[in-house]
Nucleic acid binder design. Sequence first.
DNA 1: GTGCATCTTTGCATACCATGCAACTTATGT
DNA 2: ACATAAGTTGCATGGTATGCAAAGATGCAC
Lengths: 224, 224
Amino acid sequence: MQLMLEKGAAGGGLREQKKRATRAALAEAAVHLAAEHGAEKVTVEAISAAAGVSVRTFFNYFDSRDDAFVVIDEDAGARMRRAVLDAPAELSPLEVLREAMAAELAEVEQQHELWRLHAEVLHASPHLLARGLGAHMAAEADLAAAIAERLRGADRAGGADGPGGADGAGPRAGLYPRLLAAVAGAAVRTSVDHWSAHQEEADFLDVFREVFTLLAAGLPAPSA
Amino acid sequence: MQLMLEKGAAGGGLREQKKRATRAALAEAAVHLAAEHGAEKVTVEAISAAAGVSVRTFFNYFDSRDDAFVVIDEDAGARMRRAVLDAPAELSPLEVLREAMAAELAEVEQQHELWRLHAEVLHASPHLLARGLGAHMAAEADLAAAIAERLRGADRAGGADGPGGADGAGPRAGLYPRLLAAVAGAAVRTSVDHWSAHQEEADFLDVFREVFTLLAAGLPAPSA
DNA sequence: GTGCATCTTTGCATACCATGCAACTTATGT
DNA sequence: ACATAAGTTGCATGGTATGCAAAGATGCAC
């Protein structure tokens, strides 16, 4: 073997490449068929046929039919974790998340046609919307762990916690990182949702940064 | 007919009463069976048998098997909407949500045994967790609408928006209410999650209020 | 390039999920 | 008591999802 294969990136063996292609073909077929006929009327058989594989193979890639409509990028979580841990020490936790997520979401405007279709499909059937939103939060737990790790590192390097600090070893341990991850997730969803409804009027990243500005200000009433 | 029956409340006809009882029996049977044997091993047939109804009847109450594990209170959304609209005018939007949700969540500590079981079941199978989390957000959309309505009312009564106000009729219309609803939902989930992991150490409402304090402060780093 | 180990795909069998329909039973209003 | 509306049930049907074993690709060493 020549090099350690980078797991998440493109390339690698011919096998990995084919797997990625098949998975993408299935997901794309699912979304396109759903956009045309409505998600509930699209069978696994139809998706599989459109992607050129057997029904059984579909279930080798997705745990359920609905997953094909929902999953976009499965290893975004690992990249986010990296970004949080590698961020400059002087950034506040909220800023770290804003930058990490902004980097991750940069592709949204580039592949906006795919994202728009996705949003359309999910919005058309609340069942899938719920599933998609829920899927985002599995990642939030990992993200919270990354934030907690970063904060622990900062504590050790920067200065000691005051006694009874808000996130020491007391009963509130872990509350802040979890809240931060959950709120950041809420920020992403709100931004995407708003942007996909006003796509012509504003750049996505502008919306996204305005949302974090509101968060950092403590969510004050808009006209007070 | 004597009176318009209040739809959400207890009592009413004998029919409504039986329906509520059957639904509760199904949901409770589902959770208990799941806690004992694992959610994935519980069939609709088993749930129906435990509740004393036919399989077909199960599907008259729930759209899918998973719904039985997830749904707790289906008309909480309507109560929240009411609470938001009826809240005192001097409260900030964030405070309004805090109080409305605190009132709704008061029963968490009272029925904590059921909630603990629910949390256990959902946490044991990520699939259901995602579904449960997603379900919360259907409500968030309604909640956002209620917040927007309240803000419009306050605008008309209180004073004119400054030109370019953050939530006038411009491209950002509706962003703030949606963000607020999403963040409040995140706050609830984080609080419940944290509390169910540290149930002995803190009252739920204390955790909940601390979360909102963090939000109002703009989520600053814990030791800075 | 031959051959072996590994991974992937596929068909088949099986069980469960979910819905429409028609027949039957049970509340409700007059 | 009667008619009506509402809820329950069994049956038929089709889609969803998993285990298993055979066949086909791929990667690697020689």
